[in-house]
Design a protein around this nucleic acid. Sequence first.
DNA 1: TTGAAAGCGGTACCAC
DNA 2: GTGGTACCGCTTTCAA
Lengths: 349, 349
Amino acid sequence: MPYVMVQIPNTPAPPKSPAPRPVPTSADVARLAGVSRATVSYVLNNTSAVRISEPTRRRVHEAAKELGYVPHAAARSLRAGHSRMVLMPTLPVPAGQRYSQFVHDVQGALSRLDYTVVQYGATGLRGDDAARAWAELRPVAVLVPSPSIGPDGVAVLKRSGVRAVVTLSAAPVEGAHSVFLDHAEVGRRAVDHLYARGRRRIGVVIPEERGMEMFSAPRLAGARDALHGTDATVVPLPLAYTEESAAALVDRWPDLGLDGVFAYNDEYAMLLMRALQDAGVRIPQDAAFIGADDVMPGRLLRPRLSTVRLELPSGRDLAALVDRAVRNPGAPPESHQEYGATVVHRDSS
Amino acid sequence: MPYVMVQIPNTPAPPKSPAPRPVPTSADVARLAGVSRATVSYVLNNTSAVRISEPTRRRVHEAAKELGYVPHAAARSLRAGHSRMVLMPTLPVPAGQRYSQFVHDVQGALSRLDYTVVQYGATGLRGDDAARAWAELRPVAVLVPSPSIGPDGVAVLKRSGVRAVVTLSAAPVEGAHSVFLDHAEVGRRAVDHLYARGRRRIGVVIPEERGMEMFSAPRLAGARDALHGTDATVVPLPLAYTEESAAALVDRWPDLGLDGVFAYNDEYAMLLMRALQDAGVRIPQDAAFIGADDVMPGRLLRPRLSTVRLELPSGRDLAALVDRAVRNPGAPPESHQEYGATVVHRDSS
DNA sequence: TTGAAAGCGGTACCAC
DNA sequence: GTGGTACCGCTTTCAA
């Protein structure tokens, strides 16, 4: 912006930035090419409704290149009244292997449908404040990968012109399309499995790291649920993702008297399992182990780690859902329940 | 997934979307509150240069809430001439553990400095086209985590008002601040280490997955470099991240006659190492292994995996660099070389 | 204390 | 074929 330089009285000399040239606009291009802004717009957008002579086209392109002109997306979408941006809030915790892969796939699939995916780092905002922050960007769709939005948040988004809100969560949210991903089911299946294999005192590893509760709490709840009304019990095991923390837990191990462990995910499972093995605990005889998320390293340990795999939609399916919803915002929310959790039984349980 | 509703051509009436109410603007708020748009702006932004009476404030806030008004970020920054958006292009491959953690930290740190981090999924665009796409968003800064931009790209960004371009790469890029992250150094250190421990035929595992070359190529080059002028040789070992691929490589193992392996990263190292162990190859006696990136699971295998750790700047340091650069765009580019690669020697080598 | 109005950068309608 | 111009939503002088 060509700001006025206000000289503050008595200020010696402001650090001489070498007067950054103002950013070129389409008006600059027009001036240089000796045409109007309208013509510039027609040429650069290849507007088919209007024929522009070849020499003019050339002059415009040359002027644009010479100035290093780049159109201003905000101005464009302000005028257009819409954008093709799909917003995905970033998780409040670092993404794991599987989730990174998932986001990557979704991004690719949406790109192919000509959407632009933007992961928005909204650290610090929660609930409806977050929804408001997202709405300020006027995305065409919002893809929420966690149970971090409620009906009010969805309403805010919709009133701001967002044509599709898709949630990935355990419960449908009023007004939003939802892909049913139930982390409780992960815990349920894991602990069912351990129970079926005769385990009765089952430890559930919970990450100590902050922000993880979002996913670990439902997994623990599911675990409890699985044992409801049985003779077996769940013992929560807080664990930080460090070898020290694992060692500390191993020290307490004999007192705990556990014969089975379900860990929040494969990574925590591997950490604790290894520490126990080093202390002479036999897996699975003394303690059966099962993790979650089915990552490769779990298959490489010995014994191979059993795990629960939460199915995620493919990037293509999810992108198609978003696209459908955007094209037809009036349609009733879709609800997809086909993504369940399945036990992958290997040797640790 | 439930099926797409295909609109058949010549369909009489398009499905009547219930006439979505237009998105409320500050003008609507003004109308409802019975004040001018200026007043609305003053109230909602708490402009301190102007005193607005308490009753008016209340009416404005109520009107805004009633309408579900959310300001339009594009309009705002168009008018303001700048934004606080820091753009980070997403990698062309799914992020690994370490990188996810890094991005998360950077995001948090920049948030605390009141920037908004946006990861932009530019799948499909390369080089200067990508730079142009980023420039359209008029971010205040761009953080490029890969060698995917050149001097021209930087120039495009700067001419578009980007005040700071920071690259994380092996070589400084003209006009950009740079944090020196040399993946070749990873390969060099790893192979130096193997050589020092007496290995002379060293396999270098290269991911077969597409898009990975960006990081694997320099690591391989560094490995070659380390053996330049010695009696030892490097043998590239393409490997997909599947147990089948590893098994296939194991089949060829005897013919390869290798006594040391440096793998692209710990994950590939673990995969191959386990497959070899299962085939009776002794680690490190028959083949010494070293990976890269120092992820936790590597410590859990037996023997514990040696690795090379590429130091990354802390989120805080990087955020501070960005902030400094934004505040003082005239300053000469900083170049930070303090992030080297170090061998973490464990039991596999 | 409040309002009128200019203008940020682009697009697209309507004249010429 | 091309140009003039209104307008998208918001902020911020300047005047009342």
